[in-house]
Design a protein around this nucleic acid. Sequence first.
DNA 1: ATGACTGCCTCTGGCAGA
Length: 260
Amino acid sequence: MRIASFNINGIKARLPRLLEWLEETRPAVACLQEIKTQDEGFPAAEFEKLGYHALWHGQKSFNGVAILADGTAPVEVMRGLPGDPADEQSRYLEAEVFGTRIACIYLPNGNPQPGPKFDYKLAWMERLRTRMRAIAAEEVPAVVLGDFNVIPHDDDIWSPPAMADDALMQPESRDAWFRLLGDGWTDALRTCNPQGGVWTYWDYQAGAWQRDHGFRIDHALLSPEMADRLIACGVDKDHRGREKASDHAPVWTEFRPSAA
DNA sequence: ATGACTGCCTCTGGCAGA
């Protein structure tokens, strides 16, 4: 069973590329971030044509997340991250799919730092930790995946000094990330590539793609049972090099069936 | 180097992204 994540940077602009990716890689579950559309504009019919059923949590212009499932309807568990009633940004969607709890997240960028956007990021990460601890307490097989906007290690970026002052790799951002791991979640891509050097994002600017100036910010965190069932994972890097590509590449994880 | 590119909604320029 393949579970994938793709920050598509605008579902309207990216639809042909997105449909192409689904057809080529056919994930059982696909989590999307930055759909950048209101709920009414979500092209559900296009996914139905390919056999995918969807849940989505949109917002005008910015943010927005969705969960697609191959041949079955994801059952909604939660829409929006708890812990701040004033937070109206669409960054969290949780569902039950194929006997697995799936949380699709678009974690705040946090730039510039320091400042209110960075404070929002750190507060969001603590709220996420609270929610993930609740999921863990349910002891269900679970995958929390999406754009975390955190570069966890120095070998997760082509040049640490290039982004030293960026919110994505501040000690506070990394500390919050490692607190999640400390609660028993496994960084799937790190497990598959412990040596680092794997990127999921390349900026549109300054020839970053051509120079391979990338970094890793799209992640999949696995509950203990899902970590045991992990077979392989990777990045669909070639999709970043296509016409009208997103600035992120899709990431994917592959699991053996449950023993139960 | 106050840069670079892209998407969105549109006060077609300003904001956001990372």
